[in-house]
């Protein structure tokens, strides 16, 4: 019976306005949520347990403020909730995040990891494959379908020429896109359980960062465009695309 883990991350709500103050993003007044794809990862982890038994542990890496996403996962029905953190950490790069998560996964004897295909803040899609490489495991990314088998899973991965039905034996990391399941909502009993649940906190040794965040800046503002009233101006726009923009 597999030890299943799901990685969940706390991120600003995707509708939040992202302000910059000084040369860093200012997140002091945003609303926080579980990263949207992680909800699908959580659902897949729960489905895996329902099909094959085992236990599901939700793991997050972050400050105590991140306990909320773990409690949200607990309310859905995960067995354990674990937060990885050390107060000396800040501005972690991918190398550090993955090392810390891997240290926790090893401590928990995890056999299969579910995560989101990308986090709503970084948009990086680095964590799933990076964790798998460090564990020496298989990984599949952006899955849009899953079936559970005795010793593995069969997933559907979108490729250029169509969808690849792909067999993966465990251990493995599975990065989830949306669409193949409907994340369940917590019930009253789950919410009560979550209130009482204890977050286990783990530390880790992490390497030093090999990148330096110079600054955060607002997105480049485009020169304001031209707006035309009426379809009669379509030829003008086509000419501009041809002669000024050189794109057709």
């Amino acid at each position: 019976m597999p030890e299943i883990a799901v990685l969940v991350k706390r991120v600003p709500d995707t509708n939040a306005k992202i302000a910059i103050s000084g040369d860093r993003v200012d997140l002091s007044s945003v609303k926080w949520v579980m990263s949207p794809y992680d909800e699908f990862a959580l659902e897949a982890a729960m489905m895996h347990k329902e099909s094959n038994g085992g236990t599901v542990t939700a793991i997050t890496l972050g400050t105590p403020d991140c306990d909320k996403v773990l409690k949200d996962a607990k309310a859905i029905g995960v067995d354990r909730i674990v937060r990885v953190w050390d107060d000396s950490w800040s501005d972690l790069d991918s190398n550090q995040v993955q090392s810390a998560l891997v240290s926790a996964l090893k401590e928990l004897s995890t056999e299969v990891v579910y995560c989101g295909k990308s986090a709503a803040d970084t948009g990086a899609s680095s964590t799933g494959p990076g964790v798998a490489e460090r564990m020496g495991w298989a990984s599949v990314s952006n899955i849009i379908g899953i079936e559970f088998e005795d010793a593995g899973v069969e997933v559907l991965i979108p490729r250029n020429i169509g969808n690849a039905r792909t067999g993966v034996s465990l251990p493995a990391v599975i990065s989830c896109d949306k669409g193949f399941c409907k994340p369940r909502k917590p019930n009253v009993k789950g919410i009560m359980m979550a209130k009482r649940a204890q977050v286990e906190v783990l530390g880790a040794d992490i390497p030093t960062s090999s990148i330096n965040i110079v600054s955060h800046t607002p997105p480049p503002q485009k020169a304001s465009g031209q707006k035309f009233e009426g379809a009669g101006n379509v030829p003008t726009v086509v000419a501009a695309l041809r002669n000024d923009a050189n794109v057709i």
Partner: peptide
């Protein structure tokens, strides 16, 4: 781009 393009992150390699 970070935060779906609502901000940009500038990094240097060390």
């Amino acid at each position: 781009p970070i935060y779906s393009g609502k901000a940009m992150q500038n990094v240097s390699l060390q």
